[in-house]
């Protein structure tokens, strides 16, 4: 069983590396852009139809938006970076990570609606200043939120390397008696660290704070055409579509992490794996978020 896990893990890693080295991920990106064009045209058509009074177009718009949200999420983005990083760098269950993925995607839709409708409502008075304020603050705040999640993971990893190692060792001994294939459930202490409400909320907030571009397009257009309600519904549908893909990413990340722990067995490697992953992933996310937050400062 452990060998199977190791082989599967190695195969998945090799496939990802091959895709990356071949440049294949950029072709995926190009492919996604072509779909985006087709979907964007279709969205525009539905919005025109709704304004022309064709009510069936509303449901068609919702369906399209869900598809759009899913496809949009396929591209590179901070949401998936955060969710997969947090899943790998913690022992949170797939269910918990899934909840965060869905909540983050829906919160992202809510932020987009609030932001655009808020800005548009104020448009007549303070068009430029609203836009400039949004531009000046959202970028650094969003990047800081990403950096914060990275720092949380990093700190937890470093803490786990200290006194927690003894606890982890005892847990491992307990596991040794289990049947092969039994899920390596986290100990109470581990679960508490991974699923702390603060971390979960930080994750959701960091995902939510950077609204999806496609949603902004739909909302601006809907507001201008006096279809604010339809626009909001469409963006929530979009968020659900995004949630599905993010959910898949979260599940895969948890599965990959569990396979890694299974492959590592119960020895010294296993004791170092958890904190090691946390430190590596946390450092990466902190580095990306922090660099961008610094770059966005108006120096």
């Amino acid at each position: 069983m452990r060998l199977t896990a190791a082989v599967l893990l190695a195969a998945a890693g090799a496939a990802a590396l091959a895709l990356w080295l071949s440049g294949g991920h950029h072709l995926l990106f190009w492919w996604a852009a072509r779909w985006q064009h087709a979907l964007q045209d279709a969205l525009a058509l539905r919005i025109q139809d709704i304004r022309a009074g064709r009510s069936a177009a509303f449901w068609s718009l919702l369906g399209l938006c869900a598809g759009y949200g899913f496809l949009h999420a396929v591209g590179p983005g901070h949401g998936k970076l955060l969710i997969s990083g947090a899943a790998i760098g913690s022992r949170a269950t797939a269910f918990r990570m899934g909840l965060v993925a869905v909540a983050g995607s829906l919160a992202q839709a809510a932020v987009a609606i609030g932001l655009v409708y808020g800005a548009m409502a104020l448009l007549e008075l303070t068009a430029r200043s609203t836009a400039e304020a949004a531009d000046r603050w959202i970028t650094p705040v969003g990047n800081l939120a990403v950096a914060l999640v990275g720092a949380l993971l990093l700190a937890r990893g470093l803490r786990a390397l200290g006194p927690a190692r003894a606890g982890r060792g005892a847990a491992a001994q307990g596991h040794a008696a289990h049947h092969c294939g039994h899920h390596h459930g986290p100990t109470a202490a581990e679960a508490a660290a991974a699923d702390s409400p603060g971390t979960m909320l930080a994750l959701i907030a960091a995902m939510a704070i950077r609204p999806c571009t496609g949603a902004l397009f739909v909302l601006v257009l809907a507001w201008r055409m006096d279809l604010a309600g339809a626009g909001a519904a469409a963006v929530v549908a979009m968020g659900l579509g995004t949630a599905v893909f993010t959910l898949i990413v979260a599940t895969l990340a948890v599965a990959g992490r569990d396979a890694a722990f299974l492959a590592a067995g119960d020895g010294r490697a296993a004791r170092l794996l958890g904190p090691g992953l946390q430190i590596a992933v946390g450092g990466l996310i902190f580095g990306i978020g922090g660099t961008l937050a610094l770059a966005a400062l108006p120096l």
Binding site: F29, A32, A33, Q36, H37, Q40, H72, G75, P76, G77, H78, L115, V116, A119, M120, L123, A127, R128, T130, A131, E132, A134, D135, I138, T139, G142, R210, P211, C212, T213, G214, L216, F217, V220, R224, L292
Partner: peptide, 19 residues
């Protein structure tokens, strides 16, 4: 609208899809 949109998009352009 486009100016609002462009400014709102600036942070979101992190997801570097063409729009």
């Amino acid at each position: 609208t486009l100016s609002i949109l462009a400014c709102l998009l600036a942070p979101a352009a992190v997801e570097a899809h063409p729009h």
